[in-house]
């Protein structure tokens, strides 16, 4: 491991400062100038909830919201979105409680193995933010870029519809029909 000079096959790019508002927190890290957003989020910003499925924009597992718009982080240059607002699956929860979309995915079988789930959640939350009354067709168009191999999408669509009903105020926030799930973030004893 001595001697010869380091001859990179892949051109190494110089690192430069990258900053963004990740899930409401200002983050600043050093990242190569050609870094992919997915790598920065996973390896530098600690957002391991953003999943890497294909690296070429075909599976949708790495979907994140950039200024509220769902984008594939594996096809996004990190420095292109420097200074923007980025929301990953970790940023969906309302404070310490599950967002309706998360609760509905859990309750309606929208998540089986769970690997595609972060991408679906972000894509469907972006839809619901703009459109609280999506039709089945609109839901399908919102998640058409996301592959799920377990559920066959039907229970995912049902989960999104249920979450939309909560957003519209037509259904109670908590629809869980049994007490299997206590809150994942209990906020301590009530005084």
């Amino acid at each position: 491991m001595v001697g010869e000079e380091h001859v990179p096959m892949i051109p190494s790019a110089p690192s430069k400062a990258w900053s963004a508002e990740v899930n409401g927190q200002f983050r600043e890290v050093l990242a190569p100038s050609n870094a992919i957003l997915l790598d920065v989020l996973r390896d530098k910003a600690g957002c391991l909830g953003v999943k890497r499925g294909c690296d070429m924009g075909t599976c949708g597992c790495c979907t994140v919201m950039i200024d509220g718009v769902p984008r594939l982080s594996c096809l996004t240059m990190a420095h292109e979105v420097s200074g923007r607002e980025i929301t990953t699956v970790e940023g969906l929860a309302n404070g310490s409680h599950l967002a309706p979309i998360q609760q509905c995915f859990a309750d309606h079988g929208g998540s089986q193995c769970g690997f595609c789930t972060p991408g679906f959640l972000v894509a469907s939350q972006a839809l619901l933010n703009n459109n609280p009354c999506p039709t089945e067709k609109e839901i399908a168009c919102a998640i058409e870029g996301n592959l799920c191999r377990c559920t066959g999408y039907q229970q995912i669509v049902q989960s999104i519809q249920a979450a939309a009903a909560i957003h519209r105020g037509e259904a109670d926030a908590v629809v869980s029909n049994n007490a299997a799930h206590s809150d994942p973030h209990p906020s301590g004893p009530e005084m």
């Binding site: 909830g49 999943k51 990953t88 970790e90 998360q102 309750d107 769970g114 972060p118 299997a180 799930h181």
Partner: peptide
Amino acid sequence: TVGKRTPLVDANAKVTGQAWYGDDIR
């Protein structure tokens, strides 16, 4: 619980991004 529609016991980990898959082990 048998016969009732039951969310997966690990569903919360999956919908919050906390489920740890192979590449998430650091």
